[in-house]
Design a protein around this nucleic acid. Structure first.
Lengths: 200, 200
DNA sequence: CTGTCAAAACTGAACGTTACGTTTCGCTAG
DNA sequence: CTAGCGAAACGTAACGTTCAGTTTTGACAG
């Protein structure tokens, strides 16, 4: 709603995103201010606020431009198990890189207390990927390549442990961990598909 | 390091935590200020800063006192599968309650840009629970009640999807979802324990 | 193709506001 | 009489906005 830069961006969009990204690397997400971004990018503060409603919105675009687009799509080589492994390894790599980590953690943290930002994040990052992934998963399930279960849950079983480590436990997310995780999830054999039995 | 209130708390500790909790319910985490907490609790600001270094630290104690202690321990009835179901259902209930949700999301969000707070959170919440849980899980695995795999990963497979929904996707965490999740994880049958094959 | 000009967008500085975290003051309870 | 506390006041920092004055852009006349 508020200033989605759907039209064209500001003249020096790149300089601004670059400044924000650099400052985040130098000072950490929390210490970056809108003033500092404007100064570094040699841009007036009003220009900044004209196109982005908040610091978080700026960093959302930083992440979209430099992180998500190149690195987070589920590949498609025909071998689903392998694709999933590659995909989760991508997250591991991303969550291990200090700069990307700073950006993602700061952004997600901000989104926890900024509804506007959370919405934009889900619409621009989550949603676009989700739909395709679930379809792919469902297709692979139909072909017997993946455990027969709710595709949403299957996706979450793969993707949430890395996020949990990033945002909650702080444990490192290595490639070995990624592989171990994918192996475990691919080993699910539900006796009755979508079993639901109450605990008592 | 900075003012861990390890000694005894301030005289009106309860009034302060109550004020913080109430304000969070009324205004949302982000809108609560240290000033407001002090005023509401009829306490001087210096007193607040004497015992807690930041808003996040206050809310950490709120969560510890009113959320974690009562509600997050893995029960022990002898039936591990059932205990796990109860445990994850507990998280579902917690993440569904609007007040608890506000508190947890705000606190975790703040922890993403406050190292001090993140450390305290892990030491006071994560660590105490973790050790016991992993031991229980390992024992149950030895008894053949749970899939034979890294207990750390097994715990994460159960606990991270709810956290993911809370902090990343925003999807609701229902009891049905909790059950579905536990069923899926308990259905893991690793052909070769800890299989690792590179994707190419 | 080029010179001119109006409109749009930009920079930089300044402003009021808000919350921070600290300091000071005076009361009050022990 | 003194130690500790609540209340108020203070300096600092960043917010988000407003206001000039300047630069850039693109269209059109020559």
């Amino acid at each position: 709603m508020t200033a989605t830069n759907t039209g064209r961006g500001p003249r020096s969009r790149d300089a601004i995103l670059q400044a924000a990204s650099d400052l985040c690397g130098e000072l950490g997400y929390a210490a970056v201010t809108m003033e500092a971004i404007a100064t570094r990018a040699r841009v007036g503060k009003p220009t900044l606020y004209r196109w982005w409603p908040s610091k978080g919105a700026v960093f959302l675009d930083v992440v979209l431009d430099r992180i998500v687009e190149p690195a987070i799509e589920l590949p498609d080589t025909g071998d689903m198990a392998r694709d999933l492994r590659t995909w989760i390894r991508g997250f591991a790599d991303l969550f291990t890189d200090p700069h990307a980590r700073q950006l993602l953690v700061g952004l997600l943290g901000a989104a926890q207390t900024d509804t506007e930002l959370a919405t934009m994040l889900r619409e621009k990052v989550q949603r676009p990927l989700q739909a395709g992934n679930r379809q792919r998963i469902a297709a692979a399930q139909a072909a017997g390549e993946l455990p027969a279960m709710d595709p949403v849950l299957l996706e979450e079983l793969l993707i949430s442990p890395p996020w949990y480590r990033l945002l909650v436990s702080g444990e490192p997310v290595t490639r070995e961990y990624a592989d171990e995780l994918v192996d475990a999830v691919l080993s699910i054999r539900l006796e009755r598909p979508s079993a639901k039995q109450p605990p008592r």
